[in-house]
Amino acid sequence: MTKHLDRDMEQLHRDILSLSAIVEEMIANAGRSLCEGRLDLAEKVILDDEFVDQHEVTIEEECLKMLALHHPVATDLRRIATVIKVNNDLERIADLAVNVAQRAIGVGDYPRFVIPDEVGPMVGKVTAMVRNALDAFVNMDTIAAKQVILGDDEVDRLNAELIAWLRRVMQTDSQLVVAALHCFSAIRHLERIADLATNIAEDAIYLVDGEIVRHRSVTIKNAR
């Protein structure tokens, strides 16, 4: 039984890595479509979402089958439970990337509107948070996971600055209100992706320590 469980766990590991790679690419492409006006990338993000949806269902079904067949305990049980949660978060991140791409298409109808310079760094920070959270999960690295959680403050700061800038644009030029609202929504979607990356990092800590850290302050000195 243990041999079969190990084999299935290895396949599950490969499947979640494959899904995470697609989702990371979707975030990056959605960000580029917004910052660079690359509507071709926006369309690719929207098309990729179907792949993510299909694989999210497949991974969940595999997890449930493993629970039923192998009755895992301890670390194996925590890993399968964590994969189920991470899998769901990745699907939600993909949906948010689609939302960003759709807003980028909306912004494209207003060539006079200039995307703020700070959007690029925000996209980069959010993408890195997702990547680092997934690495922390795969490598069972609680220190890296806690660094991801602490990094969410920077995204929140950028989010607040960009929203303030967009409000000023809407107050000074009524013809750019719709474009600014599209950008506003895209930024909020990026901020939500960062929140989900934080969720994945928290799940990585749970996987290693069996400790639920949601709604609690996290410090690096307490890692491991």
Rank of each mutant, 00 (worst) to 15 (best):
A30T: 08
E62R: 15
L64I: 10
E91T: 10
G120H: 14
Q11F: 09
S18H: 13
E62I: 07
H13M: 05
L17M: 14
F137W: 04
A28E: 14
E24V: 01
D53W: 00
M129K: 02
V130W: 03
I46V: 12
S33A: 10
V98R: 09
G108S: 11
Y110A: 01
Q102F: 00
A97D: 12
H70Y: 15
R131K: 15
V98D: 00
P72K: 07
H13R: 15
L69Q: 12
Q102V: 09
R103K: 14
L47G: 10
E118I: 01
M140P: 00
Q54T: 14
V100H: 12
A28D: 13
H71K: 13
V57L: 03
M140H: 13
L12A: 01
C35M: 08
D89W: 06
L47R: 15
G37R: 13
I46K: 14
L64G: 03
I16Y: 06
V57T: 11
N132P: 04
M26D: 10
D40N: 05
S18W: 04
H13A: 02
E60P: 12
D135I: 03
R92N: 03
M129P: 06
Q54A: 13
L90F: 03
R112Y: 02
R32Y: 01
D95P: 13
V119P: 10
D53I: 06
A94F: 04
K65Y: 14
P111E: 00
H70Q: 07
E24D: 14
T82Y: 00
K85S: 12
L64A: 00
M140F: 04
M122E: 10
I93Y: 01
E118V: 04
E61C: 08
V138S: 08
A101P: 12
V123L: 04
E91G: 15
G124C: 00
L90R: 10
V57E: 03
A101L: 03
N132L: 06
R103Q: 13
A101G: 13
E61W: 01
I16M: 06
P111S: 10
V83M: 08
G106M: 04
E25K: 14
E36W: 04
D109C: 05
L12S: 05
H13W: 09
L90C: 01
L67H: 11
E50H: 08
P111F: 02
A101Q: 02
C63Q: 05
L12Q: 06
F137A: 03
R38F: 07
E56G: 09
A97H: 10
E62D: 13
C63K: 00
A94Q: 05
L19E: 11
D48A: 09
V119H: 10
V107H: 08
D117E: 15
L134T: 11
D117T: 13
L34W: 01
M66P: 06
K85C: 01
E118Q: 15
V130R: 08
F137M: 02
R14P: 00
A97R: 02
K65M: 11
T58Y: 11
G31P: 12
A68Q: 07
R32S: 11
E36Y: 03
G124S: 11
